[in-house]
Each structure stands twice: as structure tokens, then as C-alpha cells.
């Protein structure tokens, strides 16, 4: 894994070693090792079906709910193995939140959408504290000014971009360390996309962010680090489907692997 390198000043938040993920008998992720730096944005890119989402979902064990999905290898969050026996996914997911491709607010009010996480994790003692958390989270997601007068309206009544920011607010309301985002802007128009990207930038000051994207431009705009995946089955001499991982600038401007170069350039047209 010679390509995988981090600057010496990067603090490591998640470290993966030899991770394999299989659906029944099909290997979707093969032997991936990478370190995800703290308080930076890491982007996963690669052709469709190469396992980006799969790998992202292993980071907070969302794959546990999928029939036939098996994960081997080691993933450590701040030094603790998240697949260790006795690890409670409830606590893990409080630390590692997730935002999905399609905005999926609950069929409840805006307020309740954000309050749900704090409720199930018992993050407050009084109603005032909860109000406070909700307000901070909505501020954090840059949504407060738009919705502060209609917190009781259904979350599904917002525009697509607002809904996605509501989902981000919902994720940060439980005070996570890491936020995983699977193509968070792919269902949105350019203006809403721009807003989300700015938001990701801001959030990176406080959170470790991992984002899957199909847009090269987006990866370059928001990501500090970029990882390029390639689908299994691979050629003989590849022992992993993580082809390249490094600083975004380096991956896009001077890729080491030929396939990375083709993908990145092809994407530029």
C-alpha cells in the first residue's frame, strides 16, 4: 500500500487494515487499508459499482442490517475496533453519523426531525436544552434562518436542498465525531449543491467528513484527501480495490496509477 500516505501532521481518526466486504459470495471490497484523517474531508471516487457506498457503510456498521453482508479486517475509530464483540452500534452511530444520497426526512415536523437523535441518545435533561440543541444543529447546517418560523411544519414540505441540510442538521444534532455522506448532493440542483459543498467545508472545522461523490469537480472543491476505488474483480497484480489514496491535488494532478489518471481525465472530458 505504498500509495497510501498521509502528511505527518494529520491526526488519524479512522484506521482500516485489510478490510474485506462480501455480499453472500461476492466480494465488493477487497483488502482495503487506509487512514482517514481527523477534521478533514476525505472523498471516495470511482466508477459505479466499485464499492464506495459499501465501504462507507462499513465505517458505521450500517451494513449490519443487510442480509448476507460480511465484513472482515480491522477498522479502528480512535483506536477502538468498531467490529469488536460487545461494540454497541447505537453508540458507534452516535459517533459516526450518516447522510444519505436522497434526502430522507422523517414524516414529522422539522423540530422533531432534529430532536429525534438527541431523544434516543438522551442528550438533554430539560426541554430548553433540547430546544437549544435543535437550534444549534439547524444553525450548524445553515438552515436556521430559513426554518426558524416554521419548526412545527413537516420536514417533508421543504425543498430538496433544504431537506438535505435538514438531514445534515439531524446528523450533527447527536454531536458526532465523523459524518459519512453518500453522494449527498447528487439529487440536488447546482445552487443547492453549492450550498451543501460550502456547508461541508464549514463542518470540516469540527468534524471528520467522508464523502462519496461522482463529481470530480466536487471532490476537488471540497476534499482534502481523495481515495480512488476500482471494482472487484481486479487484475492479478492488484491485491486491493483501493487503487490510490492521497492528497486531492496529487490524486487529480499527478496520479500514480494509470487507471486513476484515465478515470480522472475521462471525467474532465
Amino acid at each position: 500500500m505504498s500509495e497510501i500516505m498521509l502528511g505527518s501532521d494529520d491526526e488519524i481518526r479512522i484506521s482500516c487494515k485489510g478490510v474485506n466486504v462480501a455480499y453472500w459470495d461476492n466480494l465488493a471490497i477487497k483488502n482495503v487499508s487506509m487512514d482517514i484523517p481527523s477534521k478533514q474531508v476525505t472523498a471516495f471516487i470511482g466508477p459505479s459499482g466499485c464499492g464506495k457506498s459499501t465501504f462507507l457503510r462499513t465505517l458505521n456498521r450500517m451494513n449490519d442490517t443487510i442480509d448476507g453482508c460480511r465484513v472482515t479486517g480491522e477498522i479502528k475509530l480512535d483506536g477502538s475496533d468498531i467490529y469488536a464483540r460487545g461494540m454497541d452500534t447505537v453508540f458507534l452511530r452516535q459517533w459516526v453519523g450518516m447522510v444519505f444520497q436522497k434526502p430522507n426526512p422523517f414524516p414529522k415536523s422539522i423540530y422533531e426531525n432534529v430532536a429525534y437523535g438527541p431523544r434516543i441518545h438522551g442528550l438533554f435533561h430539560t426541554k430548553a436544552e433540547l430546544d437549544d440543541i435543535v437550534e444549534q444543529a439547524l444553525h450548524g447546517a445553515g438552515l436556521w434562518d430559513e426554518v426558524k418560523d416554521r419548526l412545527r411544519d413537516p420536514g417533508t414540505g421543504l425543498s430538496g436542498g433544504q431537506q438535505q441540510r435538514l438531514c445534515i442538521a439531524r446528523a450533527i444534532a447527536v454531536n458526532p465525531e465523523v459524518i459519512l455522506m453518500d453522494e449527498p448532493a447528487s439529487a440536488l440542483d447546482p445552487i443547492a449543491t453549492r450550498k451543501i459543498e460550502e456547508l461541508i467545508h464549514t463542518l470540516a472545522q469540527n468534524y471528520t467528513i467522508v464523502i462519496v461523490t461522482h463529481s470530480m469537480a466536487q471532490a476537488q472543491r471540497v476534499a482534502d484527501k481523495t481515495a480512488f476505488f476500482y471494482a472487484v474483480p481486479l487484475t492479478e497484480d492488484d491485491d486491493s480495490n483501493l487503487i490510490e489514496f492521497g492528497d486531492t491535488k496529487q490524486v487529480f494532478e499527478s496520479p500514480i496509477d494509470e487507471r486513476t489518471r484515465q478515470y480522472v481525465e475521462g471525467a474532465f472530458g
Binding site: F91, Q94, W95, H121, G122
Partner: peptide
């Protein structure tokens, strides 16, 4: 203090 095994209350589950 919350950790991987306890929540804000210091419990392993909500009260």
C-alpha cells in the same frame, strides 16, 4: 462521559 459503551448519562442505555 460518553464513550463507546456509555451515553451522556454514563449509562449503557437510556434510563
Amino acid at each position: 462521559k460518553r464513550s463507546f459503551t456509555t451515553n451522556n448519562f454514563g449509562l449503557a442505555a437510556l434510563p
